[in-house]
Structures are given as structure tokens and as C-alpha cells.
Design a protein around this nucleic acid. Structure first.
Length: 770
DNA sequence: TGACCGCGTCTTTTT
DNA sequence: GACGCGGTCA
């Protein structure tokens, strides 16, 4: 790349962005207000570093999601060329340090193939421990125990330190959980024995590694010439320390964040990390990005008026030079259903009358459970939509089962994986037997697999029939282990799906659900294939099953591509962080829901307020806020009042729909309910797009709308019937049809070599070639 | 052992 | 509304 190029891309930035990008004199903190081009600055900064000759493999960039990393890498490649950007260390904290830990696993007493316990695995283990210790499960709830363990790890408190800490002991005593320290120690011990790390361990153990192996720390310190961290306001102590350690030598670190958007304290994030950056790095410089390029003035000003109610923050003034734009639309409804209906109506109107693309519209809510009614409404009004935070592909039962087989083959000590699949598909090994095995393993301080190898030696009281079944299972797994040494990841996965009986089990089930299970297993195979290809592309030569499992464990549905599909997005506000939409609907603005009834202290309320701020600032041109006086929650109807946050918004930025006649500040019920239907202010009713009056009772048949039994054929613009496509694994084929089933778009393709296949459209990565 | 039913409980946000 | 648990029956 030539110098002219370098200058030209700095020209794309405003002066404060330029300053932040070009500064290279030591640690820097970029306070990036909402919509101020934060990603742009990071992208350009990395491109700039690459152009000034810093090799890609010496730059570490930590992002909040894998998707963000992928997209940023692509953009950088667009600026400096793929070859230059190829070897960047870019990913989430969890995925980057998983890789590092994998390379150094033996130092910490793990093997290369260590498992990663996801939340259900951790829960299952905690449950076993609570049971074994015969503690009161009402006091020692799995969630509470795991929460305590997690925050201990996030704050780098070892089990020993935990038991010796008087404050923690006092707290636990007050919570009637005096044996918490003991549970923590046992949990850690058992994870270790299973050669498994949970999510928090990935950070905790990285710190251990750096603390106990100075030469390892030194190696990475020297390796990374430059460290960049995105969303720094959402880092926790463990992450803070990792960064601090790594940056110690070169002091070349740039963190980007916005204290006003810190919304992850429940996960241990500590807003102090960003507030005290200058104390940590005394020679640092601060850059502020205050011009918002995303939203209209009204939206920015309204958001400012919201956040002004918080005390703890870095002073800044976010402004917009776009047009004033529409006021924020506020509306009150009787019920959650009515609220959902009105959102649906309004989306239909915006789409038809203002030509707003569906994928430029998002509906945001506080909790996932709110998606239900909205989904119902989207269907009612025929609006294409997509929900984030539903069941991600890798969370599906059949996928997790298959992955558990793989996990066990790679790490035979993985007790949670073993327990999961020992009787899947059903082979007559029941709860009682598993409990016996587990108990025996615990008494002998060994893994279940060892007990399985010689039940007699470990005094497991089982009859000969059961012993036979156990042995058959053991042989099955041993067979897979042997294959592991000769087959590649793809072939092994294929064999396991077949020989374990998972495929046959799914096939046996002739219902749609069974078929879809089978398709999903096929899709898993595809993803193994895609993974290996992607790794090859990124210059990684040796691709192992271990790598695949490690990556997969850290994939979330946030990482899925939303693609270019014309669909309205439904997601939690948390999930919307970093995204932007032309029009945003924020629903459920009620006391007890938003702010959540869990938030009591001032700082908790402030975090909820920041969350509201995040929600509003997602909008470019239009923002609709609504609340319902009654809401069906937890199986019953609850009544509530408008959120206090609504009254934080300066009246100037709100349209004068009925709310102004209501007394919001008193949080009372509104009096003139009759006007509530005529919300959204400016536009009258558009009878042409409203298929049913929202007040009319809709006939709802159970929850069947979630599991449509019929396969509804749909037209897909990219893949019309009869077109020719190429698939990474199956080769060339002809499209038979596209259809919707169980809420996902599928495609049926007749492949020349492999015959007819049903594929999930969003995962299949088909390439049209005719 | 496994499928099924009814009961009680909990319910935020996620790597 | 969803899920886990305990009990019952084949």
C-alpha cells in the first residue's frame, strides 16, 4: 500500500476521529458517544497501524462478539487488502484466550482437548454437588450458587481466598449459605478433574497463566505490539487485568467505549475500568467522539435528557447535525397484546407508506419472554420478522447431543458430556445407573469413564444386564476414539452421527420435528466443513476437532449473520448493542419490567437507565416508545404503571399524543384510556394495511403458531425453483423448492451426487451458479 | 427403565 | 408459560 492511500483514508474521518486514529504515543482512551463512529475509528486505526508497517500477527483486537470481529476484519481487509489483514488476532476475550489456553493447557494441568462447560453443563454440575452435600435446595439454588462462583472468578478470587475472606463469609452467612466456599472449591475441583473450563475460567485461567508463568506472559507481551479493546466499559476485573498485563511492556493500548452504554454489570462488568483508565495508565491520552452521525437531533437530545438523570459519568456532550427529525412517539395501551398489535400495525404502515425496509426496523424489549406476543402480532399482520435470542442452532438438543459425543471423544474425562449421551439415543441406561456411576466416581475421585471401564473394581452395584449395556456404550466410544486418530474432523463427525444412532433415532421419528432433527444433524456436518475451510483460509494449517469444539462452545446467536433478508428484527436491548436501525420500537416501558424489579439500588437503576439510553440511540430517524397497563407474565396478568424513565425524557422531544394529558410523573393509571388507541400521533389509521382491528379477539389455538405443522412453500428471490446451486459439501444441485417449517426457512435441493437434501437456508451458504 | 401426568416453582440481561 | 420434580403405570 502506498502513502497516498494512507492519507486518503484518514480523509474519511472528522478531526477528532483522525486524532484518535493517528495517535500512537502511548495508551489512549477513546470515549465514543453513541453513534459517533466508534467501529469506524477502530477499523481505521488498525488499518493505519498495518500500513505503518506493524505486522498483523502482533496486533491484538478484542471485540464484544465474534460477529463484530468478523465484520471488522472484513472492513480492514477492504482498506489494506486481505493478505495484510489476514493474521490479525481478532475476536472476543473468550475466543482469543481460549486459543491461548489451548496452546498452554498443560502448564495449568489441562490437556489440549479440554472441554468448555456451557451454562447448562455448569448448572448440572452445581446441582450434583448441592445434592451430594445434602444441602437445602431452596436456600442453595443452582442459580444463586453459580452466580456467586461466577462473580468470584470474575474478580479473581480463588476458592481458598474465598473461604478466608471475612466479608464474603459474612455475606454468605447472611444469605444462609455458609457453605458457599466449600461448594465453590468442589465445583472447581470437579471441573478440573473433568478437564473442563467454564466461561469464566477462560479469563480466570488466563490470569493464572500470566501470574504463574512469567515467561509465558513475557512471550505474549513481546508478541503484541498493539492492543485494542472495544466496548471497554463492559469489561470485568479479570479482563481488565489481562489487558493490563499484556500492555505492560509496550504500553501501546487503545481502548474504546462509552460509559453511558455500560449494561453488563450482572456479568461482572465494572464501569470503573473505563472511569479510572487514566489512573491505570497515567500517561494516557483521552479522545472524545461527540458527534453522532446516526440519529436525528431529536433522538440524540431525547437520549441526552435520559442519561442526564444519571450521576456517575464522564462528562461529554453528544450532538447531532442531522435534521431535527420526528419527535419520539409515545403511547399507552391497555394490554400487552394491544401493544403488540399496534406495533404490528405501525410497522405495516411504515413499510407501505414510508417505504421503510423491514430490515431497517427493530422491536426492542427488556426480556426475552416479551417476544412471544410480538411474534404473534407480526404473524397476524404478515410482517416478516426474525427473533434473536431464541434457540440458537448450537443449543438445539440434537446438536448438543452430537457435540457431546465429540466432546467426549476429545476429552474422555468430560463427565457432563458423558452423562448427557450415555442414554441418548435410549439404550436402557437409566437415572439410577448413572447416579451409581457418578457416586462411585466421586468416592474414588476419578472420572465416570474410568468407572465405566471396570465397574467391579469401583464397587458399582449393577446387574449383568446393565453391565452389558454399559460395556456396549464403552466400546462404542472406544471405537470413536480410534477413528479420531485416523479420520479428519468431518469424517469423524459423520461417523459419530451415524454409528451413535443419533441419525437413525431422528429418522425413526417420522414427524416434522424428527425430520428437522435429521436436517439439523446434516447442518452440523456442514458447519464442521465450513469451519475447516475458514480456518484454512485464515492461514491455519492444522485443523483439529478440538479447535472446532472450542469455537462452537463460544458461538452465540448474536454471532449469526442477519444477512440481507428483509425482516424486522426482534431482540432484547442487550442484544441490540452496537446495532442501528432506521426505526426502533421500544416496548414494555413499565415499572417492574423496565426498570426491572430486580434493580433496587441507585447504581442498578442507573444501569437500567443506561440500557434505555442504548435502546433509544439505536434509532436513526424514528423511535416509538410504548407501555401496557396490564401484561400477561408468569402465567398471570400483572398490572403496572408507566416506567419512571419515560418521565426522564424532556417533554420537548415527545410528540403530543395522549400521554401529555396523563400525569406521568405520578406513575398513576391514565384516566382517558379511550384515547390510548390513537397513539403514534401523526398518522391516521391506514385501513388498507390493517387486516384486523386490534381490539378484535384473535382466535389462538394453543401455542401452535410456533410449531406450524404444514410446510408452507415460500418463494425465495435468490433461489427460485429449478435454479442451480453449489454447496460446500454436497456439490452441485437443483433447487426443488423453498419452504418454511418450524419457524425457519428451508430449501430442498436435489444434488447430483448426494440426492435430495433439506437444508436450513440460513446455514446452508448456497451459491447460485446458473 | 421410560413415558407420562400433575404439581409447584421461578421468571433479566449473556460470554 | 416453561421447566423440573416426583409419582404412577406399562
Amino acid at each position: 500500500m502506498c502513502m497516498a492511500n494512507k492519507i486518503s483514508f484518514l480523509d474519511d474521518l472528522n478531526p477528532s476521529q483522525q486524532a484518535a486514529v493517528a495517535y500512537n504515543g502511548g495508551p489512549s482512551l477513546v470515549i465514543a458517544g453513541a453513534g459517533s463512529g466508534k467501529t469506524r475509528v477502530l477499523t481505521y486505526k488498525i488499518a493505519y497501524l498495518l500500513q505503518s508497517g506493524i505486522p498483523a500477527h502482533t496486533i491484538l483486537a478484542l471485540t464484544f462478539t465474534n460477529k463484530a470481529a468478523r465484520e471488522m476484519k472484513e472492513r480492514i481487509a477492504g482498506l489494506v487488502g486481505y493478505q495484510t489483514a489476514r493474521y490479525l488476532w481478532m475476536g472476543t476475550f473468550h475466543s482469543i484466550f481460549r486459543r491461548m489456553l489451548q496452546a498452554e493447557a498443560d502448564k495449568l494441568g489441562y490437556t489440549h482437548g479440554f472441554s468448555i462447560y456451557d451454562t447448562p453443563d455448569s448448572k448440572s454440575l452445581v446441582k450434583s454437588i448441592i445434592k451430594e452435600k445434602q444441602l437445602d435446595t431452596k436456600v442453595y439454588t443452582v442459580g444463586a450458587v453459580l452466580g456467586r462462583i461466577s462473580s468470584a472468578k470474575n474478580n479473581l478470587i480463588s476458592p481458598r481466598a474465598y473461604s478466608q475472606n471475612p466479608d464474603l463469609q459474612k455475606y454468605d452467612y447472611q444469605q444462609r449459605m455458609s457453605r458457599m466456599g466449600e461448594l465453590y472449591a468442589e465445583y472447581v475441583r470437579r471441573c478440573k478433574q473433568a478437564n473442563a473450563m467454564d466461561f469464566d475460567d477462560l479469563l480466570y485461567n488466563t490470569n493464572l497463566l500470566f501470574r504463574d508463568y512469567p515467561e509465558v506472559l513475557r512471550k505474549y507481551q513481546e508478541m503484541f505490539n498493539y492492543i485494542l479493546v472495544d466496548e471497554y466499559q463492559d469489561t470485568n476485573f479479570a479482563q481488565y487485568l489481562i489487558i493490563k498485563k499484556l500492555a505492560e511492556k509496550h504500553q501501546c493500548i487503545c481502548v474504546v467505549g462509552d460509559d453511558a452504554q455500560s449494561i453488563y454489570s450482572f456479568r461482572g462488568a465494572n464501569i470503573q475500568n473505563i472511569l479510572r483508565f487514566q489512573e491505570t495508565y497515567p500517561d494516557s491520552r483521552v479522545f472524545k467522539l461527540e458527534q453522532n452521525y446516526r440519529s436525528t437531533q431529536n433522538i440524540v437530545d431525547a437520549a441526552n435528557s435520559i442519561i442526564a438523570a444519571n450521576k456517575a459519568q464522564i462528562p461529554k456532550h453528544v450532538f447531532s447535525e442531522k435534521e431535527k427529525g420526528e419527535l419520539i412517539h409515545l403511547s399507552s395501551c391497555f394490554t400487552d397484546q394491544e401493544e403488540a398489535s399496534l406495533v404490528g400495525q405501525n410497522i405495516a404502515q411504515l413499510h407501505r407508506r414510508k417505504d421503510i425496509a423491514y430490515n431497517q426496523i427493530a422491536v426492542l424489549y427488556r426480556t426475552n419472554s416479551q417476544s412471544r406476543v410480538l411474534e404473534d402480532s407480526m404473524r397476524k399482520y404478515g410482517i416478516p420478522y426474525r427473533i434473536y435470542g431464541g434457540q440458537a442452532f448450537y443449543q438445539r438438543k440434537e446438536i448438543k447431543d452430537a457435540l457431546a459425543y465429540l466432546r467426549l471423544v476429545v476429552n474422555i474425562q468430560d463427565n457432563e458430556a458423558l452423562k448427557r449421551i450415555i442414554n441418548v439415543p435410549a439404550r436402557g441406561i437409566g437415572e439410577t445407573t448413572i447416579a451409581k456411576l457418578e457416586e462411585s466416581a466421586r468416592l474414588h475421585e476419578t472420572g465416570i469413564w474410568d468407572v465405566l471401564g471396570d465397574p467391579l473394581k469401583y464397587n458399582v452395584a449393577i446387574n449383568s444386564g446393565t453391565a452389558g449395556k454399559l460395556d456396549a456404550f464403552r466400546k462404542l466410544i472406544c471405537g470413536f476414539q480410534e477413528m479420531h486418530s485416523t479420520l479428519d474432523a468431518y469424517e469423524l463427525t459423520e461417523s459419530i452421527i451415524k454409528l451413535s444412532g443419533l441419525a437413525a433415532d431422528a429418522m425413526k421419528d417420522k414427524s416434522n420435528e424428527g425430520l428437522s432433527r435429521y436436517d439439523n444433524l446434516q447442518e452440523l456436518l456442514n458447519s464442521v466443513h465450513e469451519f475447516t475451510e475458514r480456518q484454512l483460509r485464515d492461514g491455519i494449517e492444522q485443523i483439529t476437532l478440538e479447535d472446532f469444539l472450542g469455537e462452537v462452545a463460544l458461538i452465540t446467536d448474536q454471532d449469526e449473520d442477519n444477512g440481507t433478508e428483509e425482516k424486522v428484527t426482534l431482540m432484547t436491548i442487550h442484544a441490540s448493542k452496537g446495532l442501528e436501525f432506521n426505526t426502533v420500537f421500544i416496548v414494555g416501558m413499565e415499572e417492574g419490567l423496565f426498570p426491572s424489579s430486580f434493580s433496587e439500588t441507585v447504581s442498578e437503576i442507573e444501569e437500567e437507565r443506561r440500557l434505555f439510553y442504548v435502546a433509544v440511540t439505536r434509532a436513526e430517524e424514528r423511535c416509538y416508545i410504548s407501555f401496557a397497563k396490564s401484561r400477561f407474565r408468569n402465567g398471570k396478568t400483572n398490572f403496572s404503571t408507566a416506567s419512571r424513565f419515560i418521565s426522564d425524557i424532556d417533554d420537548r422531544y415527545l410528540d403530543d399524543t395522549p400521554h401529555k394529558q396523563h400525569n406521568l410523573s405520578g406513575n398513576r393509571f391514565f384516566r382517558d384510556d379511550l384515547e390510548a388507541h390513537q397513539w403514534w400521533g401523526n398518522s391516521g389509521t391506514d385501513e388498507s394495511v390493517v387486516p384486523a382491528s386490534p381490539q378484535r379477539k384473535t382466535v389462538k389455538v394453543g401455542t401452535s403458531y410456533l410449531k406450524t405443522d404444514e410446510k408452507q412453500t415460500v418463494q425465495h428471490p435468490d433461489f427460485p425453483e429449478g435454479c442451480t446451486v453449489r454447496h460446500g459439501v454436497f456439490g452441485i444441485g437443483t433447487v426443488i423448492r423453498c419452504y418454511r417449517e418450524n419457524d425457519s426457512d428451508k430449501i430442498e435441493v436435489d444434488f447430483a451426487d448426494k440426492g435430495k437434501k433439506h437444508l436450513l437456508l440460513k446455514f446452508a451458504r448456497l451459491e447460485r451458479i446458473d
